[in-house]
Amino acid sequence: MIGRILAGEKQLFHDLIRPLERAVFVMLFSLLRSETDAEDAAQEAFIKIYRNLSSFRGEAKFSTWALSIARNEGLAWLRKRSARPEEPIEPVLDEGSGDFTPALLTDWREIPAEALERSELRECLRQAILKLPPIYRDVVQLRDVQELDIQEAAGVLGISPGAVKVRLHRARVMLQKELVPILKAYVSPAKGKMRFWFGRRV
């Protein structure tokens, strides 16, 4: 399809990128944490993808290539948004340090996907992801939100698969630690009755 677009069938570009629209928006939103900025950056990113299509060599998957262009666009937006210095572009973070101990608990009642009908619960999960330090937010967003495989996430981020795994592990532990106390509070304390979840041990 890329060959045909380059040969002049421009309109096919719409179909080419349709499967990536959501991924690009979510990636840019998690980077920029603003819907308006994410949408504007996504438009710019897709225009760049279109204009640079002839430089796509097919060594990587098209989606990996396109997502990394979109990510660079997002990083450029972050730099432009210098009015918000609290958002570092490259976080000063010692990867070796930090507490990556999970929240300790002795029993867990599964929260079913239906529970996400509740917007407060969705908000809790979204905020927990957005609160992660950028390098961890990146891997969670690509691997757990978008469900890319390790190899592709590594390709988009320009890091090794091993580094993706280490960051992903830490990010998941951080999310567990942050979310377990919040999610547990979703069990109605009164009468020991579950408001919305149905777990193995109910």
Binding site: E21, F25, V26, W108, L116, L125, L175
Partner: peptide, 29 residues
């Protein structure tokens, strides 16, 4: 319990409803 809770969170995070796309995003794009 740590494993169950972590796995549960990983599954929930993958739900498309966590990050929603603004209405009209695709048309405008």
């Amino acid at each position: 319990a740590i494993l169950d809770s972590t796995r549960n969170i990983v599954v929930l995070v993958a739900d498309g409803r966590i990050f929603e796309i603004p209405t009209g995003y695709s048309e405008r794009l």
